[in-house]
Amino acid sequence: MRPDAPYADPDIPENEARPTSECCLHLAIPGSMQAVRGALAQVVRTLALQGVADEQRGTVELVLAEVMNNISKHAYAGACGRIELDIARDGDDLSFSVVDDGRPMPCGVLPRGCAAELDCAVEDLPEGGFGWRLIRELTRDLVYLRIGERNHLAFRIPARA
């Protein structure tokens, strides 16, 4: 995608572009971990072209990996499904929208992502539960909505240090 012509992407009709933000990327992928890998590579390439620095690209890649692999593992739980990702540049931030048709979050709310209990013997250390900790630490304005049969997750990540 050319950074100087963000509306030229045929996947994004002009009437969907919000006037205060610049459309950056729209992807619809199968909800499999391999497809997530491919999508992450595309996101990182696109952000590099748009001048987003290494560190922020690394943060975006990590957060999107956590979010989309969670959808693959838990919302779809191995079944087929689609993940839609929209990234927009909004001032100094990147804003993200991730939508899927999978199962809702347990109890309809996001996991709290508390710091793991590490004051224990090595054999009792947790091997999971780190994902939401990372997502919550690295994003702002994290919002989850269940609308009809779809999960909507929105958040922001600074585009600059």
Binding site: G58, E61, L62, A65, E66, N69, V122, E123, L125, P126, E127, G128, F130, G131, R133, L134
Partner: peptide, 20 residues
Amino acid sequence: DFMDSSGLGAIVGVMKLVCA
């Protein structure tokens, strides 16, 4: 240059595996 929570969990898993 990239590790996510699953990769981290695998490393903790290896720590636990070898710790004895």
